[in-house]
Nucleic acid binder design. Sequence first.
DNA 1: AACAGGATAACATATTTATGCGGTTGATAC
DNA 2: GTATCAACCGCATAAATATGTTATCCTGTT
Lengths: 210, 210
Amino acid sequence: MTKLLIYEDNPQLREGLTMLINGTDGFEVLAAFKNCNTVVDEVNAWKPDVILMDIDMPGINGIEGLKRIRQVNAEVKILMLTVFDDNKNVFQAISSGANGYVLKKTPPTKLLEYITEAQSGGAPMTASIATQVLKMFSSMNNEKGEDYNLSDREKQVLQFLVEGYSYKMIASEMFIAIDTVRSHIKKIYEKLHVNSKSEAVAKAFKDKIV
Amino acid sequence: MTKLLIYEDNPQLREGLTMLINGTDGFEVLAAFKNCNTVVDEVNAWKPDVILMDIDMPGINGIEGLKRIRQVNAEVKILMLTVFDDNKNVFQAISSGANGYVLKKTPPTKLLEYITEAQSGGAPMTASIATQVLKMFSSMNNEKGEDYNLSDREKQVLQFLVEGYSYKMIASEMFIAIDTVRSHIKKIYEKLHVNSKSEAVAKAFKDKIV
DNA sequence: AACAGGATAACATATTTATGCGGTTGATAC
DNA sequence: GTATCAACCGCATAAATATGTTATCCTGTT
């Protein structure tokens, strides 16, 4: 018997989920709450197997609730529910120890399947979420994107830009005239397809040129 | 009609997959190969929707094959097949642009479901793989830098700076006067302890404010 | 020898940014 | 009720940046 707690501020959805799950053999909703205010006490008291946690709740939101639970309990499986496959939230949730991330529009049978998967150690995710996770993943470690083939000198200049140096300071650091610095920077902008210092800096970070 | 290519060195499994898929309405195996030696040509010639790619193959392995395909084709969906949910391979595959990662022991109906999911832009993963991905993800970066307690508005402005907007553009995007933008930015500089746009951008990246 | 390209440099000009000062409004806290 | 603070706005000025054009020197390639 899989025992669940539900956190969901919308009364209709809360009731709907409870009925759906209680109406299915092998599942039981221990309790359903409309906010996370005393989530730690509740989890300690009920000792559920799985928790369904809405992300968008007034007061303490789902992410914060998730974090609080994880501070005292690493075992219970937590499935996050959300309306949007919002980039920032996904990242927050999974790096805070969620076991799955499911859109609210997921059909009932699929949801039950996800709950089972979570309980048995899986990490169920709506497909669109999984795609996002993969994207984040591949964007984070990719060893350098394009090359832009900057010359050595141009790379040095860009390095100084990233460290916040002004043209004047770069000129003095590199023992060249400020006009030469300008020339280099103009070339850099061409190669990076940007037209301001801060864009160049941003691109340097994004594409791990530095 | 979903058109597939299969790369799998084991003859039994290759035949089995082909028959399974060809025997299902809406799916068609264009061809099945036992290695990746001329994978790029084949993909160009057949123009499949989805590719099933075994990871462990003699000669050019599945990861390498994946990379070669991705160099010339970013569109085709590629599902990796493997026996083990091996940490290193998973990481390699997803950061090289795989669309899904499926264990060979996946039951046939589930596999067909995964193919459909992949084709429609999802990222199907066996539960155990998904768990691994999440673990890798959360083990990675967790600590956020200082807070700097920027106000909401200041965060928005900083966001625009990072995206390379000029004061003028920010003013127009945020429907405020350019002088107000200046005010916000001055405050941001104070809080971040910097004194130029590019320093602020660099700090935003380093400290993951954005 | 001719050529391409990187590094250097100068000059001019328009735009953007940084910084100083001042101010009003509205919401929240004490 | 007044103190605080975010958000809003204006004006002025100096500094920095962006852009264009031009030119020399050197090195490696064809």
